[in-house]
C-alpha cells in the first residue's frame, strides 16, 4: 500500500478510467441498438478501445504505485 498522494492518484486514475469505459460501453450499446447486425464488429472495436484504456490506466497505476 502506498502513501496518501499515491492512493489519491490511484483513485483519480480509476475515476478517469471508469468514465472512459462508461463512455465506450454506452456508445457501443447505442451503436448496437442502432445497428444490431453490426454487433460483432462493434464489440470487437469496443474491446480494443477498452483494452487500450485499460492499458493506459494500469500503466498509470503501476508507474504511480
Amino acid at each position: 500500500m502506498g502513501t496518501i498522494p499515491n492512493l489519491v492518484g490511484a483513485g483519480l486514475i480509476v475515476i478517469g478510467a471508469g468514465l472512459g469505459l462508461g463512455k465506450i460501453g454506452g456508445s457501443a450499446m447505442d451503436a448496437i441498438a442502432r445497428q444490431p447486425e453490426a454487433a460483432g464488429k462493434i464489440q470487437t472495436a469496443m474491446i480494443i478501445i477498452g483494452a487500450l484504456l485499460e492499458g493506459l490506466a494500469f500503466g498509470a497505476l503501476i508507474l504511480g504505485a
Binding site: 487500450l52 485499460e54 492499458g55 493506459l56 494500469f58 500503466g59 497505476l61 503501476i62
Partner: peptide
C-alpha cells in the same frame, strides 16, 4: 501496455 495489462489483470 500489453505487458502491464496482462500482469495487472
Amino acid at each position: 501496455s500489453l505487458m502491464i495489462r496482462l500482469f495487472a489483470n
